[in-house]
């Protein structure tokens, strides 16, 4: 091993706790201007996963003692097999689906309500809405998407779900408390009387890199920065992602060629060099992809020196 390799900030897979499925590939009915993998109705970089492929991976995951399963895209509900996939997943463990909430149908939610009630495990919906008003959300996610997503939230609540409203922080961090307060008030007005909210940092990749700016060369994790750091805060320490092009290290970096680690879980357990700008965001905020019930950010997450 030469000196350069020794200094790479390698994160080993410590425990395969979460398995993600890029179940709708990069296909989405929306074209959000901050999407870190540039999903759209026309982006076929990654394709849908079939029921058979997901089931095969769920069986593989049993052997690994995987704790939870996450489904993302694109928009997962564009995959015509998604409801059946979620029903089957709930035989194996808890499932979380990340949706934009604009294409939900009552008949799907009826089936999913029954599936969750018949399972030991939770089915979580994370609905992406980027702010408490159309004025904040729609310029990013598209015309009328605020109204359509809130209709999706109303439907979920009618069917007894408690969706986690997930927002990318497209405002200054100092405004978090005010924005969250306004969001709770709006959701109350729409019949959601105990809203659950999750704020995510922006990831300066894909469309977002064009909308604002990409990562600078100083936005990097170094081997020295990992000394004394709780690496369980990093998604790649405890997760992998099934895509139709192989198994990726995390849901954020699937567009990066080095992020595809192999085609079996065994191949994909090798360590990963966290050398991307987005790795610095993950390092800084911690636990950005998992649900609050599963993994909380360490109280002492590090700040990045952006000088």
């Amino acid at each position: 091993m030469n000196v350069t390799e020794q200094r790479l900030p390698i994160i080993e897979l410590g425990s395969l706790d979460e398995l993600w499925f890029q179940v709708a590939g990069t296909r989405c009915n929306l074209t959000c201007s901050h999407c870190f993998i540039s999903c759209s109705p026309h982006n076929d970089s990654f394709g849908f996963l079939s029921f058979a492929e997901v089931e095969r991976r769920l069986l593989e995951a049993v052997e690994w003692g995987v704790k939870e399963f996450y489904f993302t895209g694109g928009e997962p509900f564009l995959n015509p097999e998604l409801v059946a996939i979620l029903e089957r997943t709930l035989d194996f463990g808890p499932a979380t689906v990340l949706t934009n909430g604009t294409v939900l149908k009552p008949e799907w939610l009826d089936r999913l309500r029954a599936a969750e009630q018949g399972s030991l495990y939770s089915l979580e919906f994370r609905v992406s809405i980027d702010g408490p008003t159309p004025e904040l959300n729609d310029p990013i996610r598209g015309p009328r998407t605020f109204e359509r997503a809130l209709h999706g939230v109303e439907l979920l609540v009618q069917f007894g779900f408690l969706p986690i409203i997930t927002m990318a922080r497209v405002w200054d961090e100092s405004q978090d408390a005010e924005i969250l307060g306004r969001f709770r008030a709006v959701l109350h007005l729409h019949g959601y009387d105990r809203p659950r909210l999750k704020v995510l940092p922006r990831l300066l990749l894909g469309a977002e890199a064009k909308r604002t700016c990409g990562y600078s060369a100083s936005d990097r994790v170094t081997a020295e920065m990992l000394v004394g750091y709780d690496t369980t805060q990093l998604v790649c320490q405890h997760s992998r992602v099934i895509t139709d092009r192989g198994i990726a290290v995390c849901p954020i970096l699937i567009d990066s060629p080095d992020a595809i680690l192999g085609h079996t879980l065994h191949d994909a357990t090798r360590g990963f060099a966290v050398t991307h700008g987005a790795c610095a965001t993950c390092y800084q905020y911690g636990a950005i992809c998992t649900n609050p019930s599963s993994r909380s950010p360490d109280a002492h997450v590090r700040t990045i020196d952006r000088t």
Binding site: D17, A61, V62, W64, G65, V66, K67, E68, F92, G93, P94, L120, Y121, S122, N291, S293, S294, S296
Partner: peptide, 15 residues
Amino acid sequence: FLWESTTNTQFLARL
């Protein structure tokens, strides 16, 4: 936190 509804049996076996 090991909640009943987010902790599957396979994971407990692994622990």
